[in-house]
Amino acid sequence: MQIKLTINDKAVKWDVANDELLADTLRSHGLLSVKKACDTSCCGLCTIWIDGKSMLSCSILSVRVHGKKITTIEGLPQEAEEFARILSAEGAEQCGFCSPGFIMSVLAMKNELVNPTEEEIIHYLTGNLCRCTGYMGQLRAIKTYLGVA
């Protein structure tokens, strides 16, 4: 069926299959920052925003986002780059495969939580797995980004 939606501030009409997952739809339209890595909705790599809220695009049928506003990291070049620079300065992107989804979660957290504690940061981001870094460098980057010690 055809769905109408907004992708990174651009109105589009896409034909999608009834059983198509949003992550696949996004990738097929060239939004290749969206990665799939677990098949069980628990790694966070496919994190995007729907109407400003971070969601797992592997767990939503594309037909369900008709009329919605979708944001991927491609749609946030400045905001994402600001944090990506800090992350990369720590060396905490490592293989980079989990970074786009992780960055989308971090930016969403910044919008949602006011002056989060370390515990709140860790809790908010638990669903974003990373096998390279051991998470400490990511935490350092977040603290620098949020300006907390």
């Binding site: 920052s33 990506a84 300065a89 992107e93 970074s99």
Partner: peptide, 22 residues
């Protein structure tokens, strides 16, 4: 020196540089 990875920004920003992307 703690120089950032030369590919760091591209991979962090989700640029199409992995096998499936290419």
């Amino acid at each position: 020196q703690s120089i950032r990875k030369i590919d760091g920004m591209a991979i962090a920003m989700g640029k199409p540089v992995y096998t499936e992307d290419l």
